[in-house]
């Protein structure tokens, strides 16, 4: 198992722009959406990292921007990292898919698309997951309005 420092220095090799936060139990890395794909490949394939299990993928609406949070762990070494990918464009949020790197992302990215409207480039099957195909809007966005079904406090 690698220490946070070692993981951090390896990550900074690949994306020098990354901001690391060690306050939590896991190392948290914040990057821009354009830097994500090369870093993801490195996290998966680097012989000392081998993050082979994506166990959580979440969308977050920060009102000013959106982000996608990836929780990765390595079943070989037992270390874990959290990657927060920031997407500045709220109107047309796009990030590269990682479903070709971690197969499980295929489903999780559909969920993030369904509820946050984040589009994942080159995703093989980006459709609505929980909501019906004809649904309009992204319900987990902070500015989502549904005057017919939603009763506001």
């Amino acid at each position: 198992m690698m220490s946070h420092e070692e993981i951090k220095s390896l990550i900074l090799n690949y994306s020098p722009e990354a901001v690391c936060d060690e306050s939590g139990p896991w190392l948290q890395v914040s990057i821009q959406s354009t830097d994500w794909l090369p870093l993801a490949e490195a996290l998966r394939n680097h012989s000392q990292l081998q993050f082979d299990y994506l166990f959580c993928l979440t969308g977050v609406d920060w009102k000013t921007h959106l982000s996608v949070v990836y929780h990765l762990t390595s079943k070989v070494f037992g270390h874990t990292v959290v990657v927060k990918v920031k997407i500045d464009d709220r109107i047309n949020p796009v990030v590269e898919t990682v479903s070709n790197i971690w197969r499980t992302a295929e489903l999780h990215e559909r969920e993030a698309y369904d509820l946050f409207g984040i589009r994942f480039n080159s995703h093989p099957d980006l459709r609505r997951l929980f909501l019906t195909d004809e649904w309009v809007g992204w319900p987990l966005r902070k500015d989502y309005e549904d005057p017919i079904n939603m009763i506001k406090l």
């Binding site: 319900p139 939603m150 009763i151 506001k152």
Partner: peptide
């Protein structure tokens, strides 16, 4: 889930 939900039948 009465308030502020888009998905639940009341």
């Amino acid at each position: 889930f009465f308030y502020n939900t888009y998905s639940v039948v009341k």
